[in-house]
Design a protein around this nucleic acid. Structure first.
Length: 863
RNA sequence: GGGCUUGUGGUCUAGCCGGUCAUGACGUCGCCCUUACACGGCGAAGAUCCCCGGUUCGAAUCCGGGCAGGCCCA
C-alpha cells in the first residue's frame, strides 16, 4: 500500500511539538469559576525562581500535568495554577554577588528592587522551560509571592493569627546565621561533618571536655549524670569559672552522657540545642557572649571584639599559660550550618516572632488527607512529634514580606494596621491613628521580615480564592502534589496554617513524588557532575519522551534514577506508534465505511483487548500509577496491535470486501481510543495523530469509556495468535523466511474457529481449522499439575500426590482413576488437578506436528 | 544514633494481600531489507529474585535477624 500522502514518513519531534505548542491556546486550560462541572483544584508547588527549572521539578510537573489533563478529560473543571515563591536568602545572596555589595550598602527599597528584577527575569526563563515541556498550566491563576496582591494576603494571614494568639513575640534562643545575620528555622539548618578538637581542662577542680572553649564566658552551669559515681555529692555545689571568675552551680541531668569526655559538661548559653534544653529545664541564667555578626561581646571581656574563632584560640592559649589545659583530642562531629551559605549556625537568644505549633491539631488535620504513597504520612507524623520549639518566623533580612507591625516609641505598644490598609511596609508607611494605649504618634516600624514559608504556606488559600478573610470559596483543594523532601516544611506549615486560618485540612489528597537521582544513583549535584537538565533531554528527544520517562521511570512516589535508555526507548515507542498510525491512516484513506459492523474474529478480538486496556489504564490513572498506565498502553500498542493484530489481519486490508470494512472499522475505533489514552502523557504526539484522524483536538475529547465484551472472540483470537506465533517460530527454526510459503496446515482446535482466512494469509499457507482429531499416534509424555487446585485441596499430601500421579502408567493419565495411593492411603483425585502432556508422532504421512495446549497443528511438507 | 524506604539476568525495572517454567527495556548473539516501521521483525543466551533463619504442601512475595544503598532528620 502507499502510506498516506499527507503523513510524512518520519515523525519530526521538534517540528510537531513546537507547532502544537504555538497552536494551543492558554484559555483552553483556564479554570472556570462559574462552571457546573465538579472542581478539581491543584495546589501546585510554587518553585523558587532560580532561573533553572530542573529535572526534579520536571518530574513533579509531569505528574501534575498527567493528572490535570486526565481530570479534564474525565469532565472536571480543573485548576492547574502556577505560583512563584520569590522571597528568601538565595536571591539576596545572588544579588550581593552580582553587584559585589552587601545588603547594607544600598537602601532597603533599592535592594528589594534589585531582587525583584532578578526574580522576574528568572521566572521568565522558567516559564519558557515549562511551556516547552507542554504543561497545561492555567496561567490566568499565576501568583507571585513578592507582588503586593499576594503579600497583602500573607500580611493579612499574619495579623489574623496574631490576633487569634497563634503568633507571639518572645525572646527565645533561635538558630542564627552570623554570615546572613538572620534567624533561621530548624528546617533551614543542615548538618555537615567537621573535624574539631575536644579540649580537656581543669574547671575549679573538675575536668571538663568542650569543643567550644570560647563560650566559657557564658558558662551558666556544670552538669553531670545523676548516677555517675565520680561526681557523687557534687549536686548544688558552686564552682568558679576559670579566667572569668563567676560562679556556676553543678546540676544533675540524665541527658548527660557519662561516656563522653570526662562525664561532666559545661552548659553555655548557647553552644547547642542540648544547652537550650538544660537551660530551660533547670531555669539557668542567660549570658550572651556572641553578637549577630559572630563577634564576642563585652561579656567576654577581655576577648570582646574578637571573632569567635580568634577568641577560641586566645582562650586556649591563656588556659595553656595558666596550666589548666590538660590535653586535646581530635573529634569528628556534625555541626549545624546555614542551608544557604554553609556558615556554622550559632544559637542566640533574640526577640523573635513565633507561630505556635499545636502538634495534635496538625496531625489530626493531616490524617484527614489521603496520602499517596501512604507511608509518607509517617514522615509527617515523625516530624510533628519531634518538634520541640515553636516555629520562628522572623528573619533579619530584606527581600521578604514585611511584618506589618509598628511599636509606639513612647509606651512600646505593638500597633497593627487595619487589614483593609494592607499591604504595608512598616519601615516606610506610618499608622493612620495614634497609639491606642498612650495616644503617642511616634512609631518605629518593625524591620524584621517573614520567613518565606509564611508566604508559601498559604498557597492553598490563594488558589482556592481567598480574598484575605473567611473561608475561601473553593476550599479545600483536591490535591497537593509535592516532593518528600519538603514534607516537614511546606506540607507541615500548610496544614498548620489552614487549620489556624480556616479551621480544617487544606486538601483532600496529597501525592508525594520521589527525588530524581543522577545516572550514578546519587542525588544530582554540581560537585558530582551528574546533573541532567530538562532542556538537554528535550533538545534531543522532545518533551513527550521526557514525559514518558517521568511516567514510566519508576513507580509513583519512589525515587527515580535518570536514565538515557528510558528516554531513547520512549522516543522509539513514538516512532513505532507513528508507523502504526501511518499504516492505519493509509488504509482508512483508501475509503472505508468507518461505521461498518466489526464482524471478523481478529477484529473483534482486537476490540476486546482494547476494552481491557482501557479498563487497566483508567484504573492506573485513578490511582496515579502512571508507570502502570504507560506500560499497559505500550504493551497494547506494540505487542497486541502492531505485532499480533496487524501482522495477522493486514492481508485482509488489501482485499476488497466486507471483511476489509470490518478491519478498518476496528482500526478506526482503536486509533481513536489509543490517542485519548495517550493524550495526558504525550499530549503533542496524541494531538498530531488525533487531528489527522478526527480533525479535532484530542484534548477537548472525553476520556474513553470504550467497553466491548466478546468471550468467544477473546478465546478464539488467543488461539489464533498463539498458533500464528508458534508457526512463526517453526519457520524460524527451519531457517525459513517468515513470508516463505508453507504447505497444507491443519489446525485442530477444541471448538470451531472462523478466522476469515487470516491465519492462512499471515502464514502464506493453505491453513484450515478443524475440530477433528488428527490421525496420529498419541504418546503421553508427562503431566502438568495445577498447583492452584492441588495445594489448597491436599495441603501436606500435595507432594506425595504428585509423585503418585507421575508414577501412573501413561494410559491412566488420559483417563485418570478416581483415587491414587499416597503413603498407603487411598485419596481421591481432585477435579482439574492435572492435565496429561501429549506428544504426537507422525503416522506415515510426511507432516510436522506442533502441539500447543489443546491445539494440534499439522504442517504438510508439500507446498 | 533515629525514622522512612530500597536491594530482582551485564545495566535499569515490573511483580511483592504466596501457587507450577519471574515482567519489560537497554545491551549481547543468531536469522530476516516479509509492499507501516532496520529507530523494525522473529528467535536465543543470560537470574543462588542481597545473606541467614522461620512460617507453609508451596516464598521473589509473609515473619525475624543480618548486610548494603538512598532519602529525611538528630
Amino acid at each position: 500500500m502507499s502510506p498516506s500522502h499527507q503523513l510524512p514518513k518520519n515523525y519530526d519531534i521538534e517540528e510537531v511539538e513546537r507547532r502544537w505548542q504555538s497552536a494551543w491556546r492558554d484559555e483552553d486550560n483556564y479554570f472556570d469559576p462559574a462552571s457546573p462541572k465538579p472542581r478539581f483544584i491543584i495546589d501546585t508547588p510554587p518553585p523558587y525562581p532560580t532561573g533553572n527549572f530542573h529535572i526534579g521539578n520536571a518530574l513533579n510537573w509531569c505528574y501534575i500535568d498527567f493528572i490535570a489533563r486526565y481530570k479534564r478529560m474525565r469532565g472536571y473543571n480543573v485548576m492547574f495554577p502556577q505560583g512563584w515563591d520569590c522571597h528568601g536568602l538565595p536571591t539576596e545572596v545572588k544579588v550581593e554577588e552580582t553587584y559585589g555589595i552587601t545588603k547594607n550598602d544600598v537602601p532597603r527599597e533599592k535592594f528589594r528592587e534589585m531582587c525583584r528584577d532578578l526574580t522576574l527575569s528568572n521566572i521568565e526563563k522558567m516559564r519558557a522551560t515549562m511551556r516547552r515541556l507542554g504543561f497545561s498550566t492555567d496561567w490566568s491563576h499565576e501568583y507571585i509571592t513578592m507582588l503586593p496582591d499576594y503579600y497583602r494576603k500573607t500580611q493579612a494571614s499574619f495579623l489574623q493569627m496574631l490576633k487569634a494568639g497563634d503568633i507571639y513575640q518572645s525572646e527565645h534562643p533561635v538558630n542564627f546565621c552570623t554570615r546572613c545575620e538572620t534567624a533561621i528555622a530548624f528546617a533551614e539548618v543542615n548538618y555537615a561533618p567537621r573535624t574539631t578538637k575536644l579540649n580537656y581542662f581543669d574547671f575549679d577542680g573538675i575536668e571538663i571536655a568542650t569543643t567550644r572553649p570560647e563560650l566559657l564566658a557564658v558558662c551558666v552551669a556544670v552538669a553531670v549524670h545523676p548516677e555517675d559515681e565520680r561526681y557523687r555529692g557534687m549536686k548544688g555545689k558552686r564552682l568558679t569559672v576559670p579566667i572569668f571568675g563567676h560562679q556556676v552551680p553543678v546540676i544533675e541531668d540524665v541527658v548527660v552522657d557519662p561516656g563522653f569526655g570526662s562525664g561532666a559538661v559545661m552548659i553555655c548559653t548557647f553552644g547547642d540545642k542540648t544547652d537550650v534544653y538544660w537551660w530551660k529545664q533547670h531555669d539557668l541564667d542567660l549570658r550572651k557572649a556572641v553578637d549577630r555578626q559572630g563577634i564576642m561581646t563585652a561579656t567576654a571581656a577581655p576577648y570582646a571584639g574578637m571573632s569567635s574563632e580568634a577568641c577560641r584560640e586566645a582562650i586556649l592559649a591563656d588556659m595553656e599559660k595558666a596550666g589548666i589545659l590538660k590535653r586535646q583530642e581530635v573529634l569528628e562531629q556534625r555541626v549545624g550550618t546555614c542551608w544557604r551559605c554553609k556558615t556554622p549556625i550559632e544559637i542566640l537568644s533574640e526577640r523573635q516572632w513565633f507561630v505556635r505549633v499545636h502538634q495534635d491539631e496538625i496531625l489530626d488535620a493531616a490524617r484527614k488527607v489521603s496520602w499517596t504513597p501512604e507511608h509518607m504520612f509517617t514522615r509527617m507524623e515523625n516530624w510533628a512529634n519531634s518538634m520541640e520549639w515553636d516555629w520562628c518566623i522572623s528573619r533579619q533580612r530584606i527581600f521578604a514580606t514585611p511584618i506589618p507591625v509598628w511599636f509606639c516609641t513612647a509606651c512600646g505598644e505593638t500597633v497593627l494596621p487595619a487589614e483593609e490598609d494592607l499591604p504595608i511596609d512598616p519601615t516606610v508607611d506610618k499608622p493612620k491613628t495614634p497609639c491606642p494605649r498612650c495616644g503617642g504618634s511616634d512609631f518605629t516600624g518593625e524591620t524584621d521580615v517573614l520567613d518565606t514559608w509564611m508566604d508559601s504556606s498559604i498557597s492553598v488559600l490563594q488558589v482556592t480564592g481567598w480574598d484575605g478573610t473567611g473561608k475561601p470559596p473553593f476550599f479545600p483543594a483536591q490535591i497537593r502534589p509535592q516532593g518528600h523532601d519538603i514534607i516537614r516544611t511546606w506540607a507541615f506549615y500548610t496544614i498548620l496554617r489552614a487549620k489556624a486560618l480556616v479551621g480544617s485540612h487544606p486538601w483532600d489528597q496529597i501525592l508525594v513524588n520521589g527525588m530524581v537521582l543522577g545516572e550514578d544513583g546519587f542525588k544530582m549535584s554540581k560537585s558530582r557532575n551528574n546533573i541532567i537538565s530538562p532542556e538537554e533531554i528535550v533538545g534531543q528527544y522532545g518533551a513527550d519522551a521526557l514525559r514518558q520517562w517521568g511516567a514510566g521511570g519508576a513507580a509513583t512516589g519512589s525515587d527515580i534514577m535518570f536514565n538515557w535508555n528510558d528516554v531513547v526507548a520512549a522516543s522509539r515507542f513514538q516512532t513505532k506508534l507513528w508507523n502504526i498510525f501511518r499504516f492505519v491512516m493509509g488504509h482508512l484513506e483508501k475509503g472505508a465505511d468507518l461505521d461498518a459492523p466489526v464482524t471478523e474474529l481478529t477484529d473483534r478480538w482486537l476490540l476486546v483487548r482494547l476494552s481491557e486496556t482501557v479498563a487497566e489504564v483508567t484504573a492506573a490513572m485513578e490511582g496515579y500509577q502512571f508507570d502502570r498506565a504507560l506500560r499497559a498502553i505500550r504493551e497494547f500498542a506494540w505487542n497486541t496491535l502492531a505485532d499480533d493484530y496487524i501482522e495477522i489481519a493486514k492481508g485482509r486490508l488489501y482485499a476488497d470486501d466486507s471483511s476489509r470494512e470490518s478491519a478498518c472499522s476496528a482500526l478506526r475505533t482503536t486509533m481513536d481510543v489509543l490517542c485519548r489514552l495517550l493524550a495526558p502523557i504525550i499530549p503533542h504526539f496524541a494531538e498530531e495523530c488525533y487531528h489527522n484522524l478526527a480533525g479535532r483536538s484530542v484534548h477537548e475529547e472525553a476520556w474513553p469509556d470504550f467497553s466491548y465484551a466478546d468471550d468467544e472472540a477473546r478465546r478464539h483470537g488467543d488461539l489464533l495468535v498463539k498458533t500464528v506465533a508458534e508457526l512463526r517460530r517453526y519457520k524460524h527454526d527451519k531457517g525459513m523466511a517468515l513470508n516463505a510459503p508453507l504447505g497444507h496446515v491443519m489446525i485442530y482446535a477444541p471448538e470451531p474457529v472462523d478466522d476469515a482466512g487470516d491465519a492462512g494469509r499471515a502464514l502464506n499457507a493453505d491453513a484450515r481449522w478443524s475440530t477433528g482429531t488428527p490421525r496420529l499416534e498419541e504418546v503421553t509424555s508427562g503431566v502438568d499439575f495445577n498447583m492452584a487446585v492441588i495445594g489448597p485441596t491436599l495441603r501436606k499430601q500435595a507432594r506425595g500426590f504428585m509423585q503418585a500421579v507421575e508414577a501412573l502408567p501413561p494410559e491412566l493419565l488420559k483417563n485418570p482413576p478416581a483415587t491414587v495411593t499416597v503413603d498407603g492411603e487411598e485419596i481421591p483425585v481432585p477435579a482439574d488437578s492435572f492435565t496429561p502432556k501429549v506428544a504426537y508422532r507422525v503416522a506415515g504421512e510426511e507432516v510436522d506436528v506442533l502441539t500447543l495446549g489443546d491445539v494440534v497443528v499439522t504442517i504438510g511438507h508439500s507446498s
